[in-house]
């Protein structure tokens, strides 16, 4: 039963050309950055202040291999990676933009996925609990959502950073970059679940009064079991759709925060940070187009692909919303 529904959804998804293209783009970018990860994670901060400062995109090998790392075994892949280091040009510190893009894309995607996971876990349980409990509990829980919606977001992020960063650093044994990325996860995740909670609450409220739920109650099934076995399977569609739409929103939010200087802290790259660096470079010295074109291009491409995938998923999983859906 479930199987046929899934294959039907998959068929509908495949018919949506934009969504398929989005999927192909995302898989391609993922493969590329995953393949480059062993190198980009080590090489993204290697500077070449002699030869490569703001060097234009080139196929030529600008920085000699041993500048990158002597310790790394001389593998074929490593040699190949080294040859393409200049493909997207170099930034003001002579770092390969390609490696920084590969790593930054993974960081941004990680932030997006983290937010999606938080949205699903917190949002679904919060919304479902509120709707199932009803009455005062429901009112109180939804007021909390309203309050969180109303908070000044920038302030919230700054506070989270300040409160959570020192203890996280000690727990992670001084791994500052990791602590910082985790905080951005939490900050974005902390607001990403709000919409999900509202949507799920609405869905559960309308499902709760359906005959099949009453039948389940009547035959002596407990609340928790009704939730897990009878309601949750019916919520898979909206959950999947909203989770996919959270990812591009979170990536965008991360880039906003990084742009305002309160997101991911350099030298860890992220798409937003790379775009910001690009703007600063271009603002002061006109002509270094690759520093702004590549980060912005990849950012826009990723957002587009993810939005199209989310759109296709919505059409595939919930054909009824077809006409009302805004995008």
């Amino acid at each position: 039963m479930i199987d046929t529904r899934n294959s039907l959804a998959w068929r509908r998804f495949r018919r949506n050309r934009a969504a398929c293209l989005g999927l192909v783009v995302m898989v391609g970018l993922l493969l590329m950055s995953a393949l480059a990860f062993p190198f980009s994670s080590r090489w993204s901060n290697v500077q070449d202040l002699q030869g490569a400062v703001r060097a234009a995109p080139t196929l030529r090998v600008v920085t000699p291999y041993d500048a990158y790392e002597r310790a790394l075994p001389d593998s074929l892949l490593g040699a190949g990676m080294h040859r393409v280091a200049g493909l997207a040009g170099y930034d003001d510190l002579g770092r390969s933009l390609l490696f920084r893009l590969c790593l930054g894309w993974l960081v941004s995607l990680g932030v997006g996925l983290g937010a999606a996971v938080m949205a699903v876990v917190i949002g679904v349980s919060w919304g479902a609990t509120a709707a199932m409990a009803g009455g005062r509990v429901d009112a109180a829980m939804m007021r909390i959502v309203d309050i969180l919606y109303g908070l000044p977001y920038v302030l919230f992020v700054i506070l989270l950073k300040v409160v959570l960063e020192p203890p996280l650093r000690t727990v992670l044994h001084g791994q500052g970059h990791l602590a910082n990325v985790i905080i951005v996860f939490v900050a974005i995740g902390a607001v990403s679940w709000l919409t999900m909670a509202r949507v799920i609450r609405g869905q559960v409220l309308s499902l709760r009064s359906r005959p099949f739920v009453e039948a389940a109650y009547a035959s002596g099934v407990g609340r928790m079991r009704v939730m897990w076995r009878h309601l949750l399977p019916n919520l898979v569609g909206p959950i999947a759709v909203y989770a996919t739409l959270v990812i591009p929103q979170a990536i965008l939010q991360e880039s906003f925060l990084s742009f305002l200087g309160i997101g991911v802290v350099p030298p860890t790259p992220s798409l937003g940070l790379l775009a910001t660096d690009g703007v600063q470079a271009v603002n002061s010295f006109v002509g270094f187009w690759w520093l702004i074109a590549f980060p912005c291009g990849i950012l826009v491409l990723t957002l587009l692909a993810l939005n199209f995938i989310g759109d296709g998923l919505r059409d595939a999983l919930d054909p009824r919303t077809d006409a009302v859906a805004i995008f």
Binding site: L252, L303, L304
Partner: peptide, 22 residues
Amino acid sequence: LYALYSVPSYVTAMVLIVLVVT
């Protein structure tokens, strides 16, 4: 329009500023 919607407004702002300056 969907493509435009996916372009963050600050990226557009950057591009416009760069265009005007260059």
